[in-house]
């Protein structure tokens, strides 16, 4: 049913720390792996070793350069996947009911056997979080690893999205953003977590944490390497002048 639920019991989602992400793409790889071997149609690749390879991914890492008014530019690695929006425009446009938002946890999913592959939901998503699989011709998107997080066959520490479990930098956090006391909600409050493109009115559940401000003085050793005297005197002064004359 493509009518959005008025509210969901939980708001499961991710908190992504842009301060910590090192841009290694490990989450991209683990996501592709898990979602190719498990729930739904495999995430295919076409012409993988040819001249024009394409493939479907549910998570991609962009890198941005940010140039402040003064001072050096800064690089920020920016993972992006479905934000499991509260007001998900991708769901309401779907003509078949294949796209839906779950009442119990707020996860936005695609029922692949109902999807006609019209692509309208991918148009409606402002973030580019949905991709049509080039082989299966059905819409693929982040499931928040719905087949891991409730999976009692997995050890408890593995019951989180593959990307979160994999991230070597600890830049990805998973939890209930509807519960103000959850770890993720507190993290968002402490670090000033924000929404992407709030002007699009989608009310994303996933939040991003901003890079921490750069320290003013980063180099602790530099002061010890300052030249001892600005104008050398004594032997060095003589040498300087002698060399100058040559």
């Amino acid at each position: 049913m493509t009518e959005l639920p008025a509210s969901t019991m939980k708001k499961l989602g991710l908190v992504i720390d842009l301060d910590t992400c090192v841009g290694c793409h490990a989450c991209v790889t683990s996501c592709k792996g898990w979602n190719t071997e498990n729930y739904g149609a495999a995430l295919s690749d076409k012409d993988a070793y040819g001249a024009d390879p394409v493939g479907s991914f549910l998570n991609r890492i962009h890198s941005f350069e940010i140039q402040p008014e003064t001072g050096p530019a800064q690089t920020v690695h920016f993972p992006k996947s479905c934000l499991h929006c509260e007001d998900a425009p991708c769901v309401t446009v779907c003509p078949t009911g294949a796209s839906y938002k779950r009442v119990e946890d707020g996860i936005v999913l695609v029922n692949e056997t109902d999807c006609i592959g019209c692509g309208l939901c991918a148009w409606a998503c402002p973030y580019g979080a949905r991709e049509m699989d080039p082989v299966e011709q059905v819409m693929k998107k982040c499931t928040l690893c719905v087949d891991r997080i409730y999976n009692e066959n997995l050890p408890e520490e593995d019951r989180q999205p593959a990307c979160v479990r994999t991230c070597p930098a600890g830049a990805r956090h998973f939890g209930d953003l509807g519960d103000p006391d959850s770890d993720v909600s507190r993290l968002v409050a402490e670090r000033g977590g924000f929404d992407l493109m709030p002007e699009q009115g989608t009310k994303p559940v996933n939040k991003y944490l901003p890079p921490r401000p750069k320290d003013e003085q980063i180099d602790v050793l530099a002061p010890f390497l300052e030249p001892v005297a600005a104008t050398p005197s004594g032997f060095l002064g003589w040498l300087d002048k002698a060399l100058e004359k040559l």
């Binding site: 493939g55 962009h62 800064q74 973030y127 080039p134």
Partner: peptide, 26 residues
Amino acid sequence: AETATGLGHIGKVRLFEAPHSGGNYL
């Protein structure tokens, strides 16, 4: 690009590196 990344408070945002060298569905 600033609202898309939420990083406009730091400065002007420019794509430094795309997620991959080829094209994709998007």
